[in-house]
Design a protein around this nucleic acid. Structure first.
Lengths: 211, 211, 211, 211
DNA sequence: AATGAATGAGGATTCATTCAT
DNA sequence: AATGAATGAATCCTCATTCAT
């Protein structure tokens, strides 16, 4: 059905600038008005561009908004990934975990508006990226665990649980801040992860809870 | 925000039945079509009621949908809370945790359609209830921890982190099922919580993080 | 693809009146602005109705315009058919033919605006009716010829040629009037048909009809 | 109506070639997509030219399409006229008529796509040429009749009726083919014309043409 | 002369809401 | 209380046309 002609990839400099302008405007509108109210008209106006111009570069409204979210998501991913690698130099596992928690909270706090849209208003059609993103992080974390430890087969399950745990605690801290103070959240989250990893990756050390 | 005059609460029995019919229809439409496509027309048709009648009981579309979500959320909360209390009779902490994890996954799996809407498509305007819901669960869990242990001041922070952890792991298990198998998820989540609680509530037992 | 819900058939009196108002407006707009410029906005304005109301009764723009044309075509057909039957009482074939020619020119002249749209601007999508209409006339004329004469197998071919001949001469007389005077056109067209029928249906005889 | 300044007639050879390319493209698009969907963008793309270039040679979209139709119409007219003259050498009037009928059907069949556009979708603005075309044919036929016979003053009326008759029968044969077979159509149309001409131009005689 | 990015008015359609019945 | 026809603002998208390069 939808045989829309693919929009031309911007090659000229002016075009590229225009695309950036539109994506910037899309982000602003998305954050200010939410997904449902992010109309093409509003985006065009915000970008100082005519409505028709949007369609020079994006097949329709959904592609435009998907690209906005894709770009921003990618930015976050890059920042977090780099910090992750950097933090591997920390001296103890607890320090590694803590440093990553801090980075995560910082990054999320700096992008609260975007996260609100991404986590609370994305229609299923635009969902693909969030899902893909997490799966890639799963693999990254599983790999890191595998390398760092003599972790067995459970590594994937552990990574999966960890990623979802950290994600949501951090998201909630930003989008629905608890009356706890940031330090407490960092401490608790760090403790949660550290205890879990100690239990799972270094089983001899302590014991399974009670039995 | 909403300066609309509040509609009269239905007192007649017929009215109450009508409200239920509309809420039922709202739920069905929400689950089948998603938030954006949950139009008043569709809800009215599904309820076998005229569009105008909706406004006898709800100020506008958003109040209607918010009430749908409120009602369903409350149902879930009740079910989970009751099970929580029941599970306190389990013999060991690990068994208590595990039983609650299982209940949670069961309940969420049985309401996947609703959860998808609530967790992926809610506009900010309809968001209030998810938040309230979690705050009440926070209190519940904090209280239980307080009673069960000699846990100190950190109880609230622990409860907050725990609730968010469990919530999201369970939600993800239902809405974006991992290639892990249910048993693995139950085991890991149980281990995560148990290790964390042992660490925090029974600090002497194992290692402390940094100190 | 197009699973548009069928519009409700108007049962109330008010609804029926509304449909008529819209169709009247559609005709007026069609005649004044032509098919391409017959926008839903213009039709609604002309009808003194809101744009949305159009869609209460018509699935889309094309259904609306098709219904306008259908209704008018049917009116013309009825008028011409009745006259056709009436004219069978004329004393000679030549008089029958002449009477029908006159009726045709009269009717077409009275609906020149509509005919211009129907014959010069109909997109293929709206074409079905013109075609159906002519096929029905073909059958009517073939039947009449069969009854009136001992005409053999060629009756269908004769009817087909006759219908197209008369149609276009009459249409051209109205839409692109020749510098001939109406009487001359009536005479010639009558002579054309009469000579043809005499030749084909009464092969042994000579030309002249009367006698 | 069109108060736009007339574009300069192309004098350079390259320009002339460009105009031809555009007209060719216009014809292709017109035949493939119909009048309404014959956008300037599509024509430019088909011609391998930029949209802006169109306006170097044509004041607007309508002039462009009108010129396309003008050129094609002229081609048809030329072909038919030449055949007409050639056919005057046939031995009997009936043979002359038949030969022309055959030529007409052949030519129309070979240009069905164009005719569909011209006869079913032309907006009034592009209509002028069809009209002109027929008037010139009228004169041609009237002259021929005048020369061939001692036909009196009615010659013009006869030509007018004849041209419209033949036109529409042929058009219908191509655009909405009857279930008759080509031979039958040729026979009937020939008979129609022959009988009519005999009656009108040779009034004393009987039906058959003889010589 | 040619380009093609940018324009922006225009058009079809939807849908939350109202109100006469 | 209920109805459902009517509303009309809002939305997405197209396309003829222009103009800086």
């Amino acid at each position: 059905m939808s045989s829309k002609p693919p929009r031309r990839a911007p090659r000229q400099q002016r075009s590229r600038a225009m695309v950036e302008r539109i994506l910037d405007a899309g982000l602003a509108v998305l954050v200010e008005h939410g997904y449902e109210r992010a109309g093409t008209g509003r985006v065009a106006a915000q970008a100082g561009v005519s409505p028709g111009s949007l369609y020079q570069y994006f097949a329709d409204k959904h592609e435009l908004l998907a690209r906005v979210i894709e770009r921003e998501t990618e930015r976050l991913r890059t920042r977090i990934s780099r910090a992750f690698v950097r933090h591997l130099g920390e001296p103890t596992p607890e320090r590694i975990v803590r440093a990553n928690v801090v980075t995560l909270l910082d990054t999320f706090e700096a992008n609260a508006g975007l996260l609100r849209v991404v986590y609370e208003q994305l229609p299923p059609s635009a969902d693909a990226h969030r899902t893909d993103f997490k799966h890639r992080v799963d693999e990254l974390v599983a790999t890191a665990l595998q390398l760092q430890t003599r972790g067995g087969e459970r590594v994937e399950a552990i990574a999966w649980v960890l990623v979802r745990t950290v994600e949501n605690v951090a998201i909630n801290y930003v989008l629905d801040p608890p009356p706890l103070g940031r330090a407490a959240v960092v401490d608790e989250l760090t403790a949660l992860i550290t205890a879990y990893l100690a239990e799972r990756l270094d089983p001899g050390a302590t014991a399974s809870t009670s039995d």
